[in-house]
């Protein structure tokens, strides 16, 4: 969808139009959810819901175009994801530690299995590299926006992205796919 249409949808949503909001949600929710899967693991769904509730609450006061909205949305998502991760680590003391294993065959067969696998591999990176790869490469935000979201300098974002990609290239599962 062109950016101008999305900006229109944003304006409509800010005026209280449910259809405009639905457009925004359909456009961005998958990205938010995938980013949060990398960031917060199993709690991604909760974190994504929290993110959108926050957006609903503050949308009226948001000032900017659609690009600005994307940056704002992922900044909120990051904070909610970190919150969820903290909650996760607090409950981990009692619960069994979550195992970061590759998805089983049944999941692989399901729709979106490749996506799930890819996200799992990216989530295996060090946190800063995983986030940088997700926002910069997978979601496609520019360096400045990514730097703003991660609270880093643009140079640091570039380095983290590069190191992340390099590390992914060395990943055994990717090396096996190399010849495919």
């Amino acid at each position: 969808m062109p950016d101008t249409d999305l900006t229109d949808a944003l304006r409509a949503a800010q005026q209280g139009d449910a259809a405009g909001f639905a457009t925004l949600w359909r456009t961005h929710h998958p990205s938010v959810l995938r980013y949060l899967r990398v960031l917060a693991g199993d709690h991604a769904e909760d974190a994504a819901s929290e993110t959108w509730l926050h957006v609903i609450r503050d949308l009226q006061h948001f000032d900017g175009d659609h690009d600005g909205f994307r940056g704002w949305l992922f900044r909120i998502a990051r904070h909610r994801g970190i919150d969820e991760k903290r909650r996760q680590s607090r409950t981990r003391e009692t619960a069994t530690p979550p195992t970061r294993t590759a998805p089983d065959a049944a999941t692989q067969a399901a729709e979106g299995a490749a996506t799930t696998w890819a996200l799992t591999v990216i989530a295996g990176l060090p946190a800063d590299q995983a986030e940088a790869v997700m926002l910069r490469i997978v979601i496609g935000l520019d360096v400045a926006t990514t730097a703003g979201i991660l609270g880093k300098k643009p140079g640091a974002v570039r380095i983290a992205t590069m190191r992340g990609l390099r590390r992914l290239a060395l990943h055994p599962q990717i090396r096996t796919r190399e010849g495919v």
Binding site: R34, A114, T115, W117, A118, L119, V121, I122, M134, I137, V138, L165, L168, A169, I174, R175, T176, R177, E178, V180
Partner: peptide
């Protein structure tokens, strides 16, 4: 391989 991974994501 990396391109596949990113496409999947």
């Amino acid at each position: 391989g990396l391109a596949d991974l990113l496409d999947a994501a």
